[in-house]
Amino acid sequence: MASGVEELLDMLFDMVDEAKNVPLSSDRCMIERDRALDLIDDIRAQFPVELSEAKKVMASRADLIASAKREAEAIRRQAEEKAKQVLSEETILLQAKQRANELMQQAEDRSRELKRSANEYCEDALRRTEEAVAEAYNEIKQSRARFRAAASSTAGGQAPSGGRPMYDAAADED
């Protein structure tokens, strides 16, 4: 015996297709009534089973579709969260880079300012040192000139025992 509705319908179709024509009619045929009715009864008996299986398949399909939609929605939400996280990380990274650039610029500006201040300080210190040395040199020249003048005034009569004139610092202070 056939197992499925399709197979039973194929058997019924073959029975009608192979049936002999009724004499003097081209669109009528003769088939075994009992055999045809048995096939129709078998088909009717199979319909509830087939329909039940079809309903189960449809329900299973609906469950599968619902599950797939839930999973797709979960994946979409995860992707959105990940995109937000990546965007947030990129924003933070961009802000950090901008802040780092600002700090580098500030450090470079401060370095230039410190270098300029150090150069000014060194220039000023060297100028004051140069002025002090020039003043000291002028004092030395003046002291030497006074010494020579004092030495030449004493050279006329008062030479110490060593033959060299003696310098009088007290007379130089006037």
Rank of each mutant, 00 (worst) to 15 (best):
M11G: 02
F13T: 14
F13Q: 15
M15Q: 09
E18R: 12
E18S: 15
E18D: 14
E18N: 15
A19G: 07
S25C: 06
D27M: 08
D27K: 09
D27G: 10
I31E: 00
E32K: 07
R33K: 09
R35C: 01
L37F: 03
L37V: 12
L39S: 00
L39Q: 00
I40L: 15
I40R: 07
I40C: 11
D41T: 06
I43Y: 00
I43N: 01
R44M: 10
R44N: 10
F47R: 09
F47A: 00
E50F: 11
L51S: 10
L51C: 06
S52K: 02
A54I: 08
K55Y: 05
K56Y: 06
K56R: 14
V57G: 04
V57F: 06
A59S: 13
A59V: 02
A59T: 06
R61P: 00
R61K: 05
R61E: 02
L64C: 05
A68W: 01
A72I: 01
A74W: 02
I75L: 13
I75T: 07
R77T: 11
Q78C: 05
A79K: 08
E80S: 09
A83H: 14
Q85M: 09
V86C: 06
L87N: 12
S88N: 13
E89Y: 08
E90L: 08
T91H: 07
L93H: 08
L93A: 07
L93Y: 04
L93E: 05
L94Y: 14
L94K: 13
L94V: 13
Q95R: 15
A96K: 15
A96R: 14
K97E: 07
R99G: 04
N101T: 07
N101S: 12
N101M: 10
E102H: 05
L103A: 11
L103T: 10
M104V: 04
M104K: 11
Q105C: 04
E108C: 08
R110K: 15
R110M: 03
R112I: 01
R112K: 12
S117M: 14
N119I: 12
Y121A: 09
C122Q: 06
C122S: 10
E123G: 15
E123I: 14
L126I: 12
L126E: 13
L126S: 08
R128E: 12
T129W: 08
A134S: 11
A136M: 03
N138D: 04
N138W: 03
Q142D: 11
